[in-house]
Simulated scan of single mutants.
Amino acid sequence: MPKKPVRADSSQPGQKATHLTLIDVAKVAGVSPITVSRALSRPELVTERTRQRVMEAVRQTGYVSNMMAGSLASNKSRLVAIFVPTIANSIFADTVQALMDRLTDAGYQTLLGLTGYSPEQEEKLLETILGRRPDGIVLTGTLHTEASRLRLAQSGIPVVESWDLTDDPLDMLVGFSHEQVGQAVARHLLARDYRRFSVITLADPRGLRRCNSLIGELANHGVDEVPVQIMTPPATLKTGRDGLCQLLGQGATPQVVVCSSDTIAQGVLAEAASRGLRVPQDLAVMGFGDLSSAAQVYPALSTVRVDGRMIGEHIAQALLNRFDSVDNVFDPVRIDSGFSIIDRQTT
């Protein structure tokens, strides 16, 4: 039976950590260090049962193998890993572009990973990338598995969580409050005399938080019934069209549909037009993200503007400042990038 897990030290991402070794993992797995090495680098040389014992020990300890050890005299990979949920729509494009541009100018290469809105997929990507010892990691959101948190803490690699706020960040934080977005949208639409609401959102933790916050704020103002259609990622025009079809097919008669992205909102506009519904007279529509297309569709889309480029620039500056720190002493980075409501023709 595997021995009692080695307890991770108290290091946080971005701070120097006492790195675990193959010997530590071997003790937990109940095998020899050479067996651990083989299981990680040449899994075909060990049995499946042994490999699983080793991988479980790796998960318990948060061990990160250094595939780049000894390859760089400076101990710098000059690589930054960026994890985003999807590239199926451009809501994260400005952030990624600004971040990549700034890091490239500073002599860093970037690697893009897609998490599909899944903390478990993020964990798998981290398992792959941490062994290459990137100089920094950028994550979208603040929801991570415990295994991911442990591994990032053990790695000592600077981490920036983006597009969200939390009271308990892993390391650095650049984003905005999704709860405040939901509340602000509710108050804005109530002020425009809308009373029958519905929501079309992806099964995305941040989109769901905005939805729940909006519903909570509406309840505070006496609006208790809000039909919600939860759709499978990614956000596409078809997702929006299907979402409106399902809402109306279930008997919902909203005055306004609040969507978790501009892409979904534009799909709603298309479906509304195909049904002869006038926007905003018969159905008002609110998006999120203020994509470049939002002001160009007809009618022009009301939405929530998030300055993705500014977020990317803040992330890049935070990372570069950390990379340049020579004494490992630095102030915590907690940046609220804010948001604004853009009122156009659809409301």
Rank of each mutant, 00 (worst) to 15 (best):
Met55Phe: 12
Pro119Ser: 12
Ile342Val: 15
Leu248Asn: 06
Ala252Cys: 12
Glu217Pro: 08
Ala265Thr: 12
Leu189Phe: 15
Arg278Gly: 13
Pro169Glu: 02
Gly243Pro: 09
Val181His: 04
Leu202Tyr: 01
Val258Lys: 00
Ile342Glu: 14
Val84Gln: 00
Ile129His: 03
His188Asn: 13
Met310Trp: 09
Ser325Leu: 10
Val96Glu: 01
Glu123Val: 09
Met100Lys: 13
Met310His: 11
Glu217Ala: 12
Asp336Gln: 11
Leu247Cys: 12
Asp204Gln: 10
Pro33Gln: 01
Gly312His: 06
Ala39Asn: 07
Asp9Phe: 01
Gln180Gly: 07
Leu72Gly: 14
Phe339Gly: 06
Arg53Ile: 08
Arg192Met: 11
Ser148Trp: 03
Ser260Pro: 05
Arg209His: 12
Ala219Ser: 15
Gln97Ala: 12
Arg49Pro: 04
Gly207Ser: 14
Thr128Leu: 12
Gly141Phe: 03
Gly113Asp: 01
Arg7Gly: 06
Ser274Gly: 08
Pro119Met: 11
Leu248Gly: 05
Val258Tyr: 00
Val329Asn: 10
Arg305Thr: 11
Arg305Ile: 04
Tyr117Phe: 13
Val181Ser: 06
Val326Pro: 06
Arg322Asp: 05
Thr303Phe: 06
Leu190Gln: 10
Glu146Gly: 09
Ile129Leu: 15
Ile315Arg: 00
Gln60Val: 08
Met68Asp: 01
Gln229Pro: 06
Val138Tyr: 01
Pro5Ser: 05
Ala272Gln: 04
Arg151Ala: 15
Gly107Thr: 08
Pro299Gly: 02
Leu244His: 03
Ala93Arg: 01
Ala184Val: 10
Leu277Thr: 02
Ser292Thr: 15
Pro119Asp: 10
Met55His: 11
Thr236Glu: 08
Ala57Lys: 07
Gln255Phe: 08
Asp307Ala: 14
Ser118Trp: 07
Gly222Lys: 10
Ser292Arg: 13
Ser177Ala: 02
Ala316Asn: 07
Ala88Trp: 05
